[in-house]
Write a protein that binds this DNA or RNA. Structure first.
Length: 918
RNA sequence: GCCGGGAUGGCGGAAUUGGUAGACGCGCCGGACUCAAAAUCCGGUGCUGGAGACAGUGUGAGGGUUCGAGUCCCUCUCCCGGCACCA
């Protein structure tokens, strides 16, 4: 009797069963190979969004697939619970951040459970709990003692009205998001991690990451930005500066040193400050440079401005005087806070020089090897690409360096600088040390006590954790910790005098930099991790959004190395250890614990259109796409949009990643409620390959549901039930022995099956083989369509009468269920049991294509004339080339096109095509 | 601005190494079932011309390499992500 497909009922039942039997508990000891599959943990913002559904479904597909492949799988989940949104919510709703966060976690955990993810909840971590963050405080003190954390001043965005530090995100068009006040840069003391000390290793070890996408490695390489250049010292002109000294710059183009016409310094540079003391106009300009935010994107796009300081420095090689300018695009925190300017060969310097009438001096010319030389000779009128190249050029107007190419000039000038003690070659990284202090409340307290006598003293182990008080009121005017004597009053651990506890918290990137390790030993009370980390690490498969390609992934790689170097993964010799001290074991350990993530899948963003209206003040009010009707032209292109509730137009914004701030998120709960988790999972997998950006549209969700219902109806139909009945007895399915099953089926097919039936059976294995290939290359959308194809093939088998049909359906449907199981686990588990294949589909073996069924004796060849398709023919698989050529030439269409002429050339691609060139 | 990616029917996408462009699904059109509708099932569906066989054309734009290009090379346009305090 046909039963309706009721996802709600079957999903609840299956999830209840999992809750009791806990099939997703990972074993810390196992004879099976381990497979640690990790999806990036969510920030508990309130509800799951489509990006989460996509991320976690992909991770779950991989986990279940590997379970069926016989692995001991661990798939944990937790909460990246510290962060800015909790403070914003606290202000908006008058709830303490902790309360808001824990409430969100409860909601989101339930949502994750309803998705049917195979998670090991016994390993759950919540980063805002002291039992988690105490270990990053512990690591902080170790790194502080090793000198890997140090203090220096750095600029932040300061809101002069709210008296608070703003995140870059909170600065909109140079103004504070709440106060609307013009933001200023302000220098404050902060702690920094010496990631630059690991720059070389972070760069080199990218080579070890064979399982990472090339694009991510490229981005990291460029971010680290190793460059070879020269340090150049320009002696102060004592007449104008009034004191002796040197202006230091770094350049990657020492070959153009003879073309320097001025130097530019940052507003905070000592020379700028010196000059401003006696120049009010310059002082005003420097103050202007201090306005605005810190974001690099704004720096790079803003108008370049500068002002002459009236000071001079001397050229290190010819002694000529060069004016010193203050420029808003030179930043004190980057490099030396000063640059040498070569307007003729640097595009930015060129436009700056044109703007302020500074001289442009050409010092390189294209040489004769350059095929484009002779065209576009140098002129200071407008910029041309070749001015900036390092290839195919020679020095000119450079005295003794004339005629040298890039490398020769580089070496010669570096040598001369060195001889004069005014510079030398230097390798530099773009990567800057990581400022980790945040003037915020909702984060991990920095475990430092400031003592008037002893300085900055790390909190001793026995006083850890420094607990963040959870009952607070957030006002938006600075951290509440700084107003809580019960928090900041402390005694110095060294001298016992009254001292002040640090009230800054850590960057929330810290929590996400080591959580993958904590999952291995979530309940460890006496350390960050214990020996279980050595079993589970590194993570075999990491899955997360491409937006984390640089920062999060780089910080996590860095932390892994820090943890390795404080001995958390057992005794590991440093990379510098001499060969005789290295045994195979230590070398292996060095390698396996240097990188945290063996394979990385960077999931594409789920994006959606944005809609907004502006209020009287010009502030944008974002409207959810679900509340908007889009008007399209006859070709389906959007021409306008209206808010459904009032029928009035709204502005169509960009298509961006789903976010709370732009209110363009689509709530997956609606789909789960209406169609079930299996449909939601199947659809998001089917919609696009994992790595591709997914522009959300819910048309098609219903198609996913229809397919699952067809699977259900097929299995439950009387005809199929009857057909499968005898096979259950005859085929020794419980043994899952492919050879036996395939032998039984192939023998039956030989006996009485029609060609059509054989073709359908063969086709099923062709589809399965492709699906397995796609599974390995993580292209799950085509695995989903393979499931659809196999169902169709089985449906077609059902209309063919034969004695083999029962076997084919019984075996074929088991293939379909197993292939579909990682994507739609509830329906497949239910049917697996219902049809008597076994208890647990997760422990069934992964289906492999039957090679014997794939063999065919004829192949179809494509016939082309001049590369254009003109026909097809079937030939024996082992037909020889000559015969194929003859057949092609006799083919009517080809014969007609030849019109009696001879073919110029015939190309035969065996098994594929034949191309006749006329 | 810099770094990384993307663009294929009305829509989401497929095409493993250069070898049949558009698999699979959505939508749409036609048919079956039904008093009717929904649901379901069957068939069709890139565009242009043609009753049709078929022909031409077609993978963001322009150029190139090749017997053959969605795929490789060059130039450009638009879109997306990141840019160090959103996570």
């Amino acid at each position: 009797m046909l039963q309706d497909y009721k996802p709600k009922d079957i999903e609840a039942a299956v999830q209840q069963d999992w809750k009791q039997r806990l099939p997703f508990r990972a074993e810390d000891i196992s004879s099976k190979p381990k497979y640690y599959c990790l999806s990036m943990f969510p920030y508990p913002s309130g509800k799951l969004h489509m990006g989460h559904v996509r991320n976690y479904t992909i991770g779950d597909v991989l986990s279940r697939y590997h379970s069926m492949k016989g692995c001991n799988v661990m798939q944990p989940m937790g909460w990246d619970a510290f962060g800015l949104p909790a403070e914003n919510a606290a202000m908006a709703n008058n709830v303490p951040p902790a309360e808001w966060t824990y409430a969100n976690i409860e909601v989101m955990r339930r949502q994750l459970e309803s998705l049917g993810l195979g998670l090991d909840w016994s390993r759950e971590v919540t980063t805002c709990k002291p039992e988690y963050y105490r270990w990053e405080q512990w690591l902080f003190t170790r790194l502080f003692q090793k000198g890997l954390i140090y203090k220096k001043t750095a600029s932040v965005n300061w809101d002069p009205v709210d008296h608070t530090v703003l995140a870059n995100e909170q600065v909109i068009d140079g103004r504070g998001w709440r106060s609307g006040a013009l933001v200023e840069k302000r220098d404050i003391p902060m702690y920094f991690m010496r990631i630059s000390q690991y720059a070389e290793e972070l760069l080199d070890d990218l080579e070890l990451l064979k399982g990472w996408p090339e694009q991510v490695k490229t981005m990291q390489r460029n971010w680290i930005g190793k460059s070879h250049g020269c340090e150049v010292h320009f002696p102060y002109d004592e007449a104008s500066v009034g004191l002796a000294g040197e202006l230091k710059v770094y350049t990657t183009r020492p070959d153009t040193l003879m073309g320097v016409t001025y130097v530019a310094v940052a507003a905070e540079h000592p020379l700028a400050v010196l000059a401003a003391a006696s120049n009010p106009e310059l002082e005003r300009f420097i103050a202007e440079c201090r306005r605005g935010g810190m974001a690099e994107a704004d720096m790079a796009t803003m108008e370049k401005k500068g002002m002459d300081t009236g000071l001079f420095v001397a050229h290190p090689l010819n002694g000529g005087l060069l004016p010193v300018w203050v420029a808003n695009y030179v930043l004190m925190g980057y490099g030396e806070g000063a640059v040498m300017a070569v307007p003729a060969h640097d595009e930015r310097d060129f436009s700056f020089a044109k703007k302020y009438g500074l001289p442009v001096k050409q010092v390189i010319e294209r040489n004769r090897m350059d095929s484009t030389s002779g065209i576009n000779p140098f002129t200071a009128e407008y910029w041309q690409e070749w001015y900036g190249t390092t290839e195919c050029h020679v020095c000119v107007h450079s005295g003794k360096y004339d005629g040298l190419d890039f490398q020769q000039a580089f070496d010669a000038i570096a040598a001369d600088l060195q001889a004069k003690k005014l510079g030398q070659k230097r390798t530099q990284f773009r990567l800057r040390d990581w400022g980790i202090s945040r003037q915020r409340y909702w984060g991990c307290p920095i475990p430092i006590i400031h003592c008037a006598d002893c300085g900055d003293v790390p909190v001793p182990d026995e006083q850890l954790p420094v607990i963040l008080p959870e009952q607070v009121t957030i006002t938006g005017g600075g951290s509440p910790l700084a107003k809580m004597p019960e928090f900041y009053e402390a005694t110095c651990p060294r001298c016992g005098n009254l001292a002040r506890r640090e009230t800054d918290t850590m960057d929330t990137f810290i929590e996400s930099s080591w959580y993958y390790a904590r999952y291995t030993s979530p309940d460890c009370l006496n350390g960050m991790v214990d020996e279980r980390a050595q079993y589970w690490l590194p993570v075999d498969q990491y899955v997360g959004g491409i937006e984390h390609a640089i920062l999060h992934l780089l910080y996590a790689r860095f932390f892994n190395k820090l943890m390795r170097d404080v001995g958390l993964f057992g005794e590991i010799l440093p990379a510098s250890a001499t060969q005789e001290h290295k045994t195979k074991d230590t070398e292996q350990r060095q390698k396996s614990f240097s990188e945290p993530f063996t394979n990385l899948l960077t999931q594409g963003m789920v994006i959606a259109p944005t809609f907004y209206r502006e209020d009287a003040k010009g502030k944008k009010l974002w409207i959810n796409p679900a509340e908007v009707d889009i008007e399209t032209d006859s070709r389906g292109r959007p021409v306008g949009a209206r808010l459904r509730s009032d029928g009035q137009p709204v502005v169509i914004g960009g298509t961006e990643k789903m976010s709370k701030s732009k209110n363009n998120g689509v709530d997956p709960q609606m789909i789960i409620d209406q169609y079930g988790a299996d449909t939601a999972r199947f659809f998001i997998i089917f919609a696009a390959p994992p790595e591709q950006t997914l522009e959300w549209s819910d048309s098609g969700v219903e198609g996913a549901f229809r397919f699952l219902r067809r699977v259900w109806n097929f299995a439950c139909s009387d005809q199929v039930q009857e057909e499968m009945e005898p096979s259950r007895v005859i085929i020794p399915f419980a043994s899952y022995n492919l050879e036996i099953i395939s032998e039984v089926i192939n023998a039956n097919l030989h006996e009485d099956a029609s060609d059509e039936q054989k073709a359908l059976y063969r086709e099923m294995h062709v589809v399965l083989k492709q699906a397995n290939f796609d599974m390995q290359r993580l292209q799950f959308n085509t695995v989903a369509s393979a499931c659809m194809k196999i169902l169709k093939l089985l449906e077609q088998q059902m209309v063919i009468e034969s004695s083999s049909r029962g076997f084919i359906i019984f075996f074929g449907f088991s293939i379909l269920l197993r292939l579909l199981a990682p994507i739609a686990p509830h329906i497949t588990q239910t049917l697996w049991r219902k049809l008597g294949y076994g208890e647990e589909i997760l422990s069934a073996p992964w289906p492999e294509a039957d090679e014997a069924a794939l063999i065919q004796d004829q192949v179809e060849l494509i016939i082309q004339v001049n590369g254009k398709l003109r026909g097809k023919m079937r030939v024996a698989k082992d037909a020889d080339q000559e015969m194929i050529q003859r057949m092609a030439l006799e083919y009517p269409t080809v014969d007609k096109l030849l019109a009696g002429r001879d073919a110029k050339k015939i190309i035969v691609v065996p098994g594929r095509l034949i191309n006749v060139v006329i």
